[in-house]
Measured scan of single mutants.
Amino acid sequence: MEVRTIKVFTTVDNINLHTQVVDMSMTYGQQFGPTYLDGADVTKIKPHNSHEGKTFYVLPNDDTLRVEAFEYYHTTDPSFLGRYMSALNHTKKWKYPQVNGLTSIKWADNNCYLATALLTLQQIELKFNPPALQDAYYRARAGEAANFCALILAYCNKTVGELGDVRETMSYLFQHANLDSCKRVLNVVCKTCGQQQTTLKGVEAVMYMGTLSYEQFKKGVQIPCTCGKQATKYLVQQESPFVMMSAPPAQYELKHGTFTCASEYTGNYQCGHYKHITSKETLYCIDGALLTKSSEYKGPITDVFYKENSYTTTIK
């Protein structure tokens, strides 16, 4: 009895394709271990004539594949690729409408935090270190965002349907971005203890939790000093293409032309909904596939993004 075979390709990165001759009487799992086709788990399936010449994702289970996976995804987590594939199996079914010149995501599976993050990423200057993220990001900007969303979920250790947080998501993504040249110098002034300067680099240099107003941050924000008295913390120097200011959701007025974009969060910790506000020729609110415009805006804002380049204080 002759062994019926077909020729397929296996890959971990969709760049390096490895030619395989597979036995049609055995499952993919018996031949390769966990195997995925377009995100779908085909591990328990036997090869079919229609699979001839198709590319299958496999887990990096030998040295060659491990090197290829690390170079593309910059992670050695053995569960990463499987999590990416199972997320992709959902995100490829989502709709990605162009809204006001940006790629958004039609609401499904509690994905409003991903839509808000995706919209924000198209408006701030950011370059990702893992080629996987950078490639998928370019495709997302062009309207094909399924891979990018699935990668975000995998890097953030999230599953489809789980509630997510924009600030946490951005923080994970910033860790995989090139923020080497970003720098922030802060000064804390206390009447009792004097003053202390701190220099922050990388992710810490672009994120701040405690106030939404970048102007206020430049002037000074009140913080408790270690001595128990009130101290003032203010920005001395900022070198970065953008800054992200966050605070627990509270009524906040966004003035046209003073910011790049913002995240609105309605609801409580267990259950809520994100919308995205962007400042173009007027203010726009993007909620999944829905767009509304207004000249002014007041609502429960939790993150505001500002364009920056270089700032030095005039406070002496």
Rank of each mutant, 00 (worst) to 15 (best):
Q216A: 13
Y306R: 08
H273M: 01
P300R: 14
K46S: 12
T278E: 08
E239I: 12
T312D: 06
E264I: 11
D62I: 02
C271K: 13
S246M: 05
P248I: 06
A262P: 04
E68R: 08
Y113W: 15
V160E: 02
Q270P: 00
A140G: 06
A250R: 14
G161P: 01
F70L: 15
N100Y: 06
L17E: 11
F259S: 02
K293C: 12
L59P: 07
A69L: 12
E144L: 05
I152D: 07
V203Q: 13
T10M: 08
V22K: 01
I277M: 04
K183W: 00
I286Y: 06
V189R: 10
V185I: 12
F32E: 05
E239T: 10
T103M: 05
V42H: 12
E253P: 03
Y269L: 13
A140E: 12
K44F: 14
K106D: 15
D303R: 02
A205W: 02
A132H: 05
E125F: 04
V185C: 04
T27M: 12
L119M: 06
N157E: 06
K218L: 03
I223N: 02
Q175E: 11
N16H: 09
E2D: 12
C190K: 02
K298M: 13
S310N: 12
N100H: 15
T27V: 14
F128K: 01
V58G: 05
Q123R: 04
A136R: 05
C149W: 00
V42M: 13
D165E: 05
C225E: 11
F217I: 13
V221Y: 09
R184W: 09
G143T: 04
N268D: 15
R66T: 12
T116W: 04
F56E: 00
H90E: 05
S86T: 11
L186C: 08
S294Y: 15
V203A: 13
N14I: 00
R83M: 06
K275Y: 00
S213K: 03
T103E: 05
T211Q: 06
G210T: 02
L153W: 09
I301H: 00
T10Y: 11
A289E: 15
Y269C: 02
M244E: 02
K95D: 13
I105C: 02
V189M: 07
T19I: 11
E52V: 12
Y155L: 00
A289V: 07
Q175Y: 02
L126M: 09
K229M: 10
A289Q: 08
G267V: 02
I301F: 00
V42F: 15
K7T: 13
E253A: 11
V189F: 08
K46E: 13
T282H: 06
L186F: 14
D62E: 10
A177Y: 04
G194F: 09
M209Q: 14
V189N: 09
T19Y: 10
L291K: 06
P47K: 01
E52A: 12
Y84W: 06
T226M: 11
Y137P: 09
N16V: 15
L119Y: 03
T226D: 13
T11S: 11
L118H: 02
I223H: 10
L212F: 00
T258Y: 05
A115K: 01
G53K: 12
Q122W: 01
T266L: 04
K183V: 12
S25T: 15
K54T: 12
H256S: 03
I105Q: 08
V67I: 11
L290G: 09
R184H: 00
A117C: 12
Y214H: 09
P47M: 03
V21R: 12
G101D: 10
L186Q: 13
L121Y: 01
T260R: 03
A132S: 08
M245W: 05
V203D: 08
T64M: 06
M170V: 07
S171R: 15
A142P: 03
A40L: 14
G39L: 08
V21E: 15
K127L: 06
E239F: 07
L291V: 15
I286M: 07
L88K: 05
K218V: 03
T27N: 13
D180W: 00
Y208A: 00
S279M: 02
K54H: 13
V206Y: 02
L59V: 12
R4F: 08
G288I: 01
V206F: 00
A154E: 09
A231T: 07
Y113Q: 05
A177W: 00
N268W: 04
E253I: 13
E71D: 11
G101L: 06
V206D: 01
Q237G: 05
N49D: 13
T35R: 14
